[in-house]
Structure formats: C-alpha cells, structure tokens
C-alpha cells in the first residue's frame, strides 16, 4: 500500500491536469484552479522541511567540530536573526525595528549582485578555454561568438558597417534554428517523461520500501 496509493494519486492528478486543458466546463476549471492554489501552499510547507534540514545538518557539523564548523554557526545565526526579525517584528520597516530591512539591504542585495557580476570574469575564462580547443565544433562556436560580440558594440560598425546587420541576421536565423531544434526535441522528451511518470513507468520517487 505504501507504493500503490501514491502511484494512484499521481495518475489521477496527472490525468486530471492534462484533461482540464480540453474541458472548459466550469466545474473542472474551478477544481483545477483550486489545485494550483493548493500547490503553492504545499510548497510553502516544504520551507519548514528546508529549515529542519539546514538546522539538522549544520548543527551536526558544529557538534562534532567538523570542517568549517565556525562558519556554520555564522550561517545559523544569520538565518535565525533574519527569520525571527521578519516574522516576530514584521517585515515592514515602518512598524518594526529595521533589522530585517537592514540585513536585506546591506547583505542580501550587494552579495546577490556581486555573485551575478562575477559572471563577467567567468565568461571570459570560459571563452579563453574554448579558444584552446581545436575541433570544428569549437571553431564554429568561437567564430560566431566573436562576430556577434563585436557586432553588438560600436567597434563592430567601425570595423565594417555591415557587421551589425550580419549579427542581427545570425541572431534571427542560425541562432533560432539551433534553439528550435532543441526546443522541439526537449518538448518531446518532456512530454514522454511526464507520461511515464503519470502511468507509473517511472516511479522511483516513491522510494525504496
């Protein structure tokens, strides 16, 4: 029963979700709308599991003085302060102590944008590595990348006035040809795996016993 009931539940909900696209009847649409609202709530409950997971794993490291245990303490403190200040004191800066807002602006925002900005260096190092490859595929990738990169800045027009047009043509046609092939293939794969999950052909998420 530990496996059969979840299998049946997956099949019923999966089939219903596919069917509701074709059934405009208000009763069916009403249920499907509700189901999608419920999903949001269930996902929110998973956040409690997330907290439990973080606390369990990191407190384990701290207790046995594992690798970087001091930093795990820092992480748990940051997490607890953020959660408690947000929930107990309110997240609105007007009616609360501004801890939540303060940490958001002075830590969350700058670190998020800096991690994102690191990509400028990583994209350069990735390109450099690709330059050293000597296959036809790598050369095609690099030549196109170089044309598009130069064609998008004013230097491109300075080198050859038609370069921006060529760049635009590459983005509209060859770039889309590859993307389209991937999208069609991937959508077939996605539908097929979705079908197999609903019919229980792929059922490993139900666990071992």
């Amino acid at each position: 029963m530990k496996r059969e009931i979840p299998l049946a539940i997956t099949a019923i909900f999966g089939i219903f979700m596919v069917a509701q696209l074709f059934i405009p009847h208000y009763l069916v649409q009403d249920i499907s709308g509700r189901l999608q609202d419920w999903a949001v709530v269930i996902v929110a409950f998973a956040y409690i599991l997330g907290v439990a997971n973080i606390i369990k794993i990191n407190s384990g490291v701290i207790c046995r003085r594992g690798q970087d245990w001091e930093y795990k303490i820092v992480m748990l403190i940051a997490l607890v302060i953020m959660m408690l200040s947000g929930i107990l004191l309110g997240k609105d800066p007007d009616d609360s102590l501004p801890i939540f807002d303060f940490m958001y602006n002075s830590m969350y925002v700058p670190m998020q944008s800096t991690m994102f900005a690191l990509l400028a260096f990583f994209i350069a190092s990735a390109a450099f590595r690709a330059f050293r490859a000597r296959t036809t595929e790598a050369i095609l990738l690099l030549v196109t990348a170089t044309i598009v990169m130069i064609g998008r800045v004013s230097l491109g027009e300075f080198i050859w006035e038609r370069l921006p047009d060529i760049t635009e043509w590459i983005m509209n046609y060859p770039n889309n040809a590859g993307k389209r092939g991937i999208k069609i293939g991937a959508s077939l794969g996605a539908i097929s795996i979705g079908l197999k999950v609903i019919l229980g052909i792929e059922k490993s998420y139900l666990g071992g016993d």
């Binding site: 599991l49 997971n53 490993s204 998420y205 666990g207 071992g208």
Partner: peptide, 16 residues
C-alpha cells in the same frame, strides 16, 4: 535549492 525537491531527492538516493 527548492525546499520541495529535498524529500524527493532523499527518496531517490535511498532507492538507488
């Protein structure tokens, strides 16, 4: 990253 994936991943690894 998404908390909801944690239980699914646990089940998968256990089953493997």
């Amino acid at each position: 990253r998404p908390p909801f994936v944690v239980p699914v991943a646990e089940e998968m690894v256990k089953k493997g």
